[in-house]
């Protein structure tokens, strides 16, 4: 690996690790320590369950959100790197590498959290964990009942999900850093509103009318997540969502590259 790419990747990766540390510190403070203090003050300490709180922290989901947000941070890094003679291409490559490394870190953290904390605290066995509200529930029978294979497949899927979130953040961050402040605010405000309207629109249209024009969207979604011919839950094909996420990530990475190459210093 070229020196500058390695240095830049290392910089971004350590920066993200540091931020991740702080994120978890805040998470614990807000969802563990604050409720504890609140219960202590209000005299309801017997309502406070340490194990319950720990087991519902949702470190895995938080990590996904974290990766998407930190990957979207673009302009501040670009400024620093261009000041230090780092090209846009190297910046993009380093962000991809750092994101992959972080995805791996996140997967490991989530695996440890799930199997060493959540499962013993909330479920009696890993099988029950898979059968209760875990996203892998839909795919649990596809590879048979070998626990190791299923754990491995679920982790690969998790990693791919993180990568998709990361590249999505990367793409949106790159686009956003090209917009002016006003446009950016406009998009931030109007985007969610339009999104909600769109969802309502679909919901109200597809409600009860299976022959509706939006049905193709639902079919496409089913296809992408591996639900062929209305398979029963647990029998969906996990390879399909993996492929979907891989293709999605590549598209996002491509979009990010395209806009990343247009980055410029604002005066």
């Amino acid at each position: 690996m070229p020196t500058k790419l390695r240095t830049t990747t290392h910089y971004l990766f350590t920066e993200q690790l540091r931020l991740l540390g702080w994120t978890y510190v805040y998470l614990i403070a807000i969802f563990l320590i604050l409720p504890f203090i609140f219960d202590l003050i209000s005299g309801n300490l017997k309502d406070f369950s340490l194990t319950g709180s720990i087991a519902t922290l949702g470190l895995g989901a938080v990590f996904g959100l974290f990766l998407m947000i930190t990957m979207s941070l673009t302009y501040d890094h670009f400024k620093l790197f261009i000041q230090n003679g780092i090209s846009r291409k190297t910046f993009w490559r380093a962000r991809i590498l750092s994101m992959l490394a972080m995805g791996l870190v996140g997967t490991i953290i989530t695996a440890i959290y799930d199997y060493a904390i959540v499962v013993p605290l909330r479920f009696d066995s890993i099988a029950k964990f898979f059968n209760n509200g875990n996203f892998y529930t839909l795919y649990i029978h596809y590879f048979g009942n070998n626990l190791a294979i299923n754990i491995f497949a679920s982790l690969i899927m998790l990693l791919l999900a993180y990568i998709l979130l990361g590249t999505t953040g990367l793409a949106f961050g790159s686009i956003f850093s090209l917009l002016s402040k006003t446009t950016r605010r406009l998009v931030l405000i109007l985007g969610p509103i339009l999104g909600i309207f769109f969802l309502f629109f679909i919901a109200s249209n597809s409600n009860g009318h299976s022959s509706d024009s939006f049905i193709w969207l639902l079919d496409l979604f089913k296809f992408l997540v591996g639900d062929f011919n209305n398979a029963a839950a647990g029998h969906l094909n996990p390879l399909m969502p993996m492929l979907t996420m891989l293709v999605g990530s590549s598209i996002m990475a491509g979009i990010a590259y395209f806009f990343n190459q247009k980055l410029k210093v604002k005066s």
């Binding site: 620093l80 090209s87 846009r88």
Partner: peptide, 20 residues
């Protein structure tokens, strides 16, 4: 343009602050 090797051989101290 987009070249680490040449960009690393120059330094621009600008009026705009690029440091965090």
């Amino acid at each position: 343009v987009d070249n680490d090797a040449t960009l690393g051989r120059l330094y621009l101290m600008s009026e705009v602050n690029l440091y965090n």
